[in-house]
Design a protein around this nucleic acid. Structure first.
Length: 453
RNA sequence: GUGGCUGUAGCUCAGUUGGUUAGAGCGCCUGGUUGUGGUCCAGGAGGUCGUCGGUUCGAACCCGAUCAGCCACCCCA
């Protein structure tokens, strides 16, 4: 490690540049080991719930053809294009591939591509990162992990799944202990049927604006409907009447019917909404709310839509979202392949709890016991103890060099390793284990000892 | 992409009306003898004050530009 002076100077100069590179990049979160361990435990629990309902795992490539990502209309999506740095200028101008910005579109492509090998209804879960080039903010990232479950079928999807999706997510939220959440449920058919019956010609625009009621209030919605869509006062009144309807029970649909608007699509949507709310009535009051102002921005939703928020922090962005889509997968082929799904914003939820200090502090390593490398012991002896413990399924690390015990203990203590093992030395030496939290130390046998933590 | 606020050590921040060698706490490293961590004590490393330019005898401080971060909009997990 004796670099010549010139190299040293060069390193120093590089350090200046490196400092900038060492800074975190906004929107690309990274955790310390003790935090990542919790996040991994979360992922394990989410997987557990997904699999308990019979959903199978897939992983899709991180990259899709640009046309696939842009297919569903939302062309203004901020997507990251893939390009080789060494590429020739000419061919570099237009990218063929881009990082996926969600998991639903890649899933649709995957289903379309593997149609012959999948059994329908196809039920899959997918826990992967996604990328969006938007401006980062609280709760919004440029690289983040989503946990998706979807069902795709070659026939019409039974309403059973419309009710099961939010139930699964509710169970996940309970398992993760993130605090009270509210799942708001609506049905696009109700909105579209209602607006069409009113004579509105661009129901999707109305849906987009009504979705903002949460943030800008009824007056703000009213103003936008006037300014942007030039709707008349009577129509706006009805639109706002519908957006005001909420309820925790299936009978909420009667309150919509009471508004006196009728239509086939509207009725179909109300029947669906009734079924879903009825199926969820056995859950704690307030966990699921029918809210006729919820729309979800995404264009491809056609029926039931969901949106989960923290009950005690309504201004925080949506933590789970999803719904039913009639044509997303089919649009890749020429078939009718409806789907329904919901996505958990793992990074969004997790980072909030981290920031609020609500992630239980844990140790910095999974190690359960650290074997001391006693200065006068042989490497074979101490390593042998470690191997014995490890073979019994105990997470064991051997201290890496025969340093002073003071330093070995400090290392174990700083990393939060619960136990330290002092191997037997000499003919009549005894193995001892110390529990750092209490300071207690006792004789132990590597063949039978069991850790507490 | 549009608008507003902020940029001093690894982190959280002080820094007087512009004035010598820019500080604190935490963290980090070493030591306080022989085989036992946290506490305590002593010592140490670490900063061209985001970057570039301007005003000035003199700039961390004033001005401009630029970059980055945060917040709001857009959109969304």
């Amino acid at each position: 490690m004796n670099a010549p002076p010139s190299a040293r100077a060069c390193e120093r100069a590089n350090d200046m540049i490196e400092k900038q590179k060492l800074k975190p990049i906004s929107g690309f979160p990274e955790w310390l080991p003790e935090v990542r361990m919790v996040e991994q435990a979360w992922i394990d629990r989410i997987r557990g719930v997904f699999e308990s309902y019979g959903f199978a795992p897939i992983e899709t490539r991180s990259v899709e053809p640009v046309e696939v990502l842009l297919k569903q209309g939302d062309t203004d999506k901020e997507i990251y294009a893939l390009r080789r740095l060494m590429e020739e200028e000419a061919s570099a101008s237009e990218a063929d591939y881009a990082l996926h910005y969600d998991l639903t579109v890649p899933m649709a492509r995957y289903v379309a591509a593997n149609l012959n090998d999948l059994t329908f209804p196809f039920k899959r879960y997918q826990i992967q990162r996604a990328w969006r080039g938007e401006r980062p903010q609280e709760g919004r990232f440029r690289e983040f992990t989503q946990c998706d479950i979807d069902v795709v079928d070659t026939r019409d999807i039974p309403l059973h799944f419309d009710a099961e999706m939010p139930a699964i997510v509710y169970e996940v939220m309970q398992a993760l202990d993130v605090g009270p959440t509210v799942t708001r449920i609506n049905n696009r058919k109700v909105l579209e049927g209602f607006y069409r019956a009113l004579g509105v010609e661009q129901p999707h625009e109305v849906i987009r604006i009504v979705d903002k009621q949460d943030k800008i209030g009824p007056d703000g919605v009213s103003k936008m409907l006037t300014d942007e869509l030039s709707l008349d006062g009577a129509t706006i009144g009805k639109v706002l009447d519908l957006a005001r309807v909420t309820g925790t029970k299936a009978d909420v649909v009667e309150r919509v019917r009471a508004l006196g608007i009728t239509g086939d699509l509207l009725e179909q949507g109300l029947d669906e909404l009734h079924f879903v709310m009825k199926a969820l009535e056995s859950y704690p009051e307030g966990a699921f709310v029918a809210d006729l102002s919820v729309a979800r921005g995404l264009a491809y939703y056609t029926g039931t839509v969901y949106e989960v928020k923290f009950a005690d922090d309504p201004s925080f962005p949506t933590i789970c979202g999803g719904g039913r889509y009639e044509n997303l997968v089919g649009s890749m082929l020429n078939k009718h392949l409806p789907g329904i799904g919901i996505s958990i914003g793992l990074t969004r939820i997790f980072s909030k709890l981290v920031r609020e200090g609500r992630i239980a502090p844990t140790r910095k390593t999974p190690t359960q016991v650290m074997v001391c490398y006693l200065p006068d012991a042989s490497y074979e002896a101490v390593n042998g103890v470690a191997r014995t413990l490890r073979a019994r399924g105990i997470k064991t690390e051997l201290f890496h060099e025969p340093r002073k015990l003071k330093q070995q203990l400090a290392y174990a203590s700083n990393k939060g390793i619960p136990h330290v093992w002092f191997p037997a030395v000499g003919a009549e030496g005894k193995h001892e284990v110390k529990t750092l939290a209490t300071g207690a130390q006792a004789d132990a046998d590597p063949e039978s000892w069991l850790p507490e933590g």
